[in-house]
Design a protein around this nucleic acid. Sequence first.
RNA 1: GGAGCUGUAGCUCAAUUGGUCAGAGCACCGCCCUGUCACGGCGGGGGUUGCGGGUUCGAGCCCCGUCAGCUCCGCCA
Length: 594
Amino acid sequence: MKRTHSCGGLRLAQAGHEVHLAGWVSGRRDHGGVIFIDLRDREGVTQVVFNPALAPEVSALAHGLRSEFVVQVTGKVSPRPEGTKNATLTTGEIEVLASGMQVLNPSETPPFPLDEEGVNEDLRLRYRYLDLRRPAMAEALRARHRAALAIRHYMDQKGFYEIETPVLFKSTPEGAREYLVPSRLNPGKFYALPQSPQQFKQLLMVGGTEKYFQIARCFRDEDLRADRQPEFTQIDIEMSFIGREDIYALIEGLVQRVWKEVKGVEIALPFPRVTYREAMETYGTDKPDRRYGLKLADLTEVFRNSSFKVFQSAVVAGGVVKAFNAKGLAVITTGQIEDLTNLAKSHGAKGLAWIKVENGEWKSPIVKFFSDAEKKALTDKLGVEEGDLILFGADQWVAACEVLGLVRIRCADYLEKLGKLKKDPAQLDFHWVVDFPLLRKDPEHPNMVASHHPFTAPVEEDLPLLESQPEKVRGQHYDLVLNGVELGGGSIRIHQGKLQDKIFREILKLPGDIVQSRFGYMVEALQFGAPPHGGIALGFDRLMALLLGHESIRDVIAFPKNARGQDVMSGSPAEATTRQLKEIHIKSETIPGA
RNA sequence: GGAGCUGUAGCUCAAUUGGUCAGAGCACCGCCCUGUCACGGCGGGGGUUGCGGGUUCGAGCCCCGUCAGCUCCGCCA
């Protein structure tokens, strides 16, 4: 053994013991005579003292130590002299008086300091193996391991089996764009990497497994975000003979366990339920951040007969007028108003109407169109006061809500920077969003499409509406939301083959041959006595980011990709050779001769 | 596909209206220093201001283009 203790473990109790430590030099203070080295491993830091009076040869050697050298030290644990204890270190009561030292490996000068925050992320990713030595990253990996263990213990206690499902799967083009994997043995054919183990976990239920879970890697070839990676990890769960309430109870217990074991934080149960309709009406999103107000109000009736044509015509067209009061944001700059307008426009709005209330005056390009009655209704409904900013949306219901929902979030950011609003990460507003519509209209599609996926079961009492008013049918779907982040979602599935087939053919109107080739085996499986079943998937990376207070899931993944899906350390993705391409029967447009 | 922000030493950043502005701290190298923990002192090296054009007597600063990183919109059944 190269060491007898970790660099985080020594206390006064070990005083007088001869120990071996090994680790990285994280700092040195060379006084010419005595030299102090902070020796770091993943458990902590211990001060090593080289005293020329006690160990002249070793001390001479210690002059040559530099940052990130890997060394092994032999010495005696000694209480620090009075007045030199360091309360910021867990090992601060003691130090190790070196009697021997060996450099196990020297190091180049690190390209960035490992003891400071705020280093350019691109550089950190390029040297991820150094970045991972930083205590914050070491802590993230430790916590992630703890969380995974807590999940496995909890799921085992609840009677679940952890079962692996294939990574080489089949393309199901309805959902997210997939990564394709060419098959060498089957020229011209491709696997696809799963966007989730959805179909396999349902087939496990048909297979009588009853309770399945998996900490599963999933793949989606879509554009990246701070909370989206091309490969990410889901806590995937499915169970038989259950209803929605069973899933809520299971997941609430799971989340409670994880927060308790990793953070020591007690979470109150049960989580509140919010309907999709209510979330959209009030917050303009199906994953609301309810830690702050800025709630949306409906003003459709106020402007039904307005002389302001933009609002009035939206109502005539069957739409709505919505608004919210960004309390205290009248100090907004012209540039910020322009940003908000661009945000609204990029989401399909024609513009963004606003009113600033400053010095007792309503300042706005549109206020001249408002009657006194309309102004009074606004004041009453939105609680308008000096210093407020009112923002409007007028469109079809979903569009108006969503645009204002985005604007609301951006306004909250502005208010937070002004110190007028606080989004406290310690406040944990878990809630379920329920009663989603089963189907929705998609502008790029002639028919209705599944709001989530086509295996979601309709709410039973809505079944009679499936043919007559499909848009009114609610799905047995549920999302788990925390502080404006969708942590996960799932549903009770359709378990009757006939109903599943009807959804594919008659409601989603997929061509018969497509249904057969893509989902035939699913429909067939459901016809062999599939049990009623349902499940959920939680985003493990997002969960960890929220748990540890990180903005980006990249900070809780050991080797993440950048915003272009590249690993800048290894240089992936990279070109393939002509020979490789030939083997898998691929011709490249960008590689000559391939 | 679109929008915004950013790009100056190894790192984090500064440089008034375009005018000795190529700078600081840390890091690095050398010398000194026996109780520091952000050790201290003296000295030193280090730059194609992302890249390419343009305007100007003069560009880190203004204009155009381009590249890269991040964030957001679209996208994410």
